[in-house]
Design a protein around this nucleic acid. Sequence first.
DNA 1: CCATCGTGGAGGTTTACATCA
DNA 2: TTTGATGTAAACCTCCACGAT
Length: 233
Amino acid sequence: MAVLPTCSSHLELTISIPGFASSPSLPSSGGSMVRDLDINQVPSGEDEWITASMEDEEESCNANGGAAAPRKKLRLTKEQSALLEESFRQDHTLNPKRKEAMALQLKLRARQVEVWFQNRRARSKLKHTEMECEYLKRWFGSLTEQNRRLQREVEELRAMKVAPPTVISSHNYEPLHASTLTMCPRCERVTTTTAAALDKVSTKITLAATTATTLSSKVGTSALQSRPSSAAC
DNA sequence: CCATCGTGGAGGTTTACATCA
DNA sequence: TTTGATGTAAACCTCCACGAT
């Protein structure tokens, strides 16, 4: 069963499905894959860089403000990523004071901290949607199998049927269609459980298929990637 | 109330960089 | 060693909701 997050400040999804080990570990930026070189990083302890970057951040970040200045890509250091992750775990949103404090602590611009949180929230949501999609796919498969089983059972019971075409219900004395009836193997009483269960399963399948389709389209057009992702359902 | 403005988040896109065949 | 395909994440853009004035 899926335990959907009810607290907005804690987005990690916990899904426990037999045979499906979810690993909601936070992305750690590839560990050793990330180079230590950081083009936006302060070379070493320049206080004037910090103050300058804080003050004219709108210039350096503005797309058209930079005019010919090509967009340079920052790679966060492991320490910076870890700190941001830790902060994100505490709270998924930023207020201006916290943003400034983090920027100062990380020697980044406030805008960079803000962007990182935006992207991190998007990744978190994408991951959640992917897991939900995976869960619904499994649910759909399970229900389809259950449906097949029940259909077979109905067919078998119909084939076995030797009783008259209609039976009077023991509850309200209304005539029932024999085709909707089943025989309880224990008490040998006629019941309608199989047909009822079949109806329920059919309804569930419709619901699961609809939801899975919606989620698949969401995941397929990933919020973070313009290119097709391998994680798409 | 209603209009306007500023702010922040969501969703989507672009782009620089890393990795691998 | 070079190169093209692909994945990842930072940066950006647009839209919308919401609160303040």
